[in-house]
């Protein structure tokens, strides 16, 4: 199966939908291309989907940060969490909203190399930050070793907690907390998997840590 199929779904038979889906697809392709090169075309750095709603009469905050190597300068409602900005504004829907209360870990991203839950932080507080989401792990179409290990070891079922688990695993390995099975279990306990793919997740983290 290919991702084209989902985009076909997104187009459906609804015209408005198709314009959105196409614009989004081009944004994603663009992001991929930018990750691959070292310079960021200025014209694209500010790319935000045309339809991003500007809140009427809300107080605006300005923030500029880089996501997966692409710089974004945004004017936004200060109430917006980093998670909502990723999902609703930048169309980076790989980061998941599970509980929106810091109690599940599905929204885990890396900010300046550290894993955090993006639901409990305001986007307006991250000027200058270097942010990595699941969309930024693979490079040139090559999966990150942790991504590969998750497939190999069945580290997921439904896939919804998976981006958070994978980002968290990248953080866990970088912290040096992947030395033993029990250590991995302890340091991966901030990511709930309701499907119960924990044994696969542990095996994947151990495997990827060993290869690093």
């Amino acid at each position: 199966m290919s991702d084209d199929k989902y985009w076909d779904d997104a187009r459906g038979d609804v015209d408005i939908a198709s314009t959105r889906a196409l614009s989004r697809r081009s944004v994603l392709q663009l992001a991929g291309a930018v990750t691959a090169s070292t310079t960021i075309p200025e014209a694209f750095a500010n790319t935000t989907p045309a339809a991003a709603p500007t809140p009427a009469a809300a107080i605006a905050a300005k923030v500029s940060f880089s996501v997966n190597g692409v710089r974004h300068s945004l004017e936004l409602d200060p109430r917006q969490s980093l998670l909502d900005v990723m999902r609703e504004r930048l169309e980076l829907t790989g980061t998941k909203k599970g509980c929106n209360q810091g109690a599940c870990g599905a929204c885990t991203i890396l900010v300046n190399g550290k894993r955090i839950v993006s639901c409990l932080t305001l986007a307006a507080m991250h000027s200058g930050a270097e942010i990595t989401t699941i969309e930024g792990l693979a490079s040139n179409g090559d999966l990150h070793p942790v991504q590969e290990a998750f497939i190999k070891h069945e580290g997921f079922q439904c896939g919804y907690c998976t981006p958070g688990q994978i980002i968290s695993a990248v953080g866990c390995i970088a912290e040096g907390h992947a030395g033993s099975a029990e250590e991995i279990q302890f340091w991966m306990s901030g990511n709930i998997c309701r499907c119960g793919a924990y044994p696969g997740i542990c095996a994947a983290v151990a495997d990827a840590a060993g290869r690093n």
């Binding site: 810091g102 409990l120 932080t121």
Partner: peptide, 9 residues
């Protein structure tokens, strides 16, 4: 306390 992510924050 909390989780690794929350402890980073």
């Amino acid at each position: 306390g909390a989780s690794p992510q929350l402890r980073n924050m």
